[in-house]
Amino acid sequence: MKNCIFCKIIAKEEDAYIIFENDYVCCFLDKYPINRGHVLVVPKKHYSEFVEVDDESLTRIMSVSKHIAAGLQALLKTDGITIMQNNGAFKDVDHYHMHIIPRFLDDGFSWVEPEMVVSPEEFVEISSLLRETFISS
């Protein structure tokens, strides 16, 4: 995609600290890291959303993410790793990507969970509707 910063990094038209790439993925340090060693794993083919990414690329993204997480844990002596991605209005770049974030106790990064009450009837309804998506696919 012409104006996509990640596509430009993949094409070597923009600078990045690339740590690994193959035919499917390009992995580089996040320019605006949550913590030192924050890596982005990006499919080389442009996709906007998670559900658009082809299965082979997703498999490669997960495999490489696992390898990077293990490397970061050993290298930085982390207290943990957060692996996440955002979609729709919650993503910051319109090119699917996975975040691999080294975590340290008291690093200031948090996940805020709102109070959510779901009735037993709502659990039954949503689980039933989701099961139907597997039957119809």
Rank of each mutant, 00 (worst) to 15 (best):
F104W: 08
I126V: 15
D15S: 13
L29G: 02
R60G: 01
H99S: 01
A70V: 08
V39L: 01
G80Y: 09
D30M: 00
L75K: 11
R131T: 12
D55L: 14
S63V: 10
N3F: 10
I101P: 02
S128F: 06
S136M: 06
S127H: 12
G88Y: 04
M98E: 03
L105H: 15
P43E: 08
D55I: 15
E49D: 15
H95D: 01
S136P: 00
H46F: 13
P43F: 05
S48G: 12
P33K: 00
K66M: 10
N86Q: 04
I81N: 02
I100Q: 00
N35W: 02
A70M: 07
S57L: 08
F123S: 07
K8S: 09
F50S: 05
D94F: 02
Q85N: 13
S65Q: 07
L76D: 03
A70T: 08
I101H: 02
W111A: 08
F50Q: 02
F104Y: 14
V93G: 02
L75N: 10
P102Q: 08
F109Y: 13
I101F: 05
V124S: 12
N35E: 09
I101T: 09
T78D: 03
T59P: 00
M98L: 14
F50M: 06
E113V: 15
N86L: 02
A74F: 06
L129G: 03
E132V: 02
L58Y: 08
D79M: 07
H97P: 01
I83Q: 03
E49K: 11
M116K: 15
L130W: 07
W111L: 15
A16V: 11
Y32P: 00
Q85H: 15
V39S: 00
F90V: 02
L76G: 13
G88P: 01
H99R: 03
E49Q: 10
H46I: 07
Y17R: 11
G80K: 12
S65I: 07
Q73L: 05
M98K: 06
E13C: 10
L129Y: 04
A89N: 13
E52G: 06
Y96G: 01
N3C: 08
K8E: 15
D54L: 12
E13N: 12
V42N: 03
I68V: 14
T78H: 05
A16P: 11
Q85P: 03
K31C: 04
G71K: 12
D54I: 15
H99E: 00
I100D: 00
R103Q: 05
P120Q: 14
S63R: 08
S127G: 09
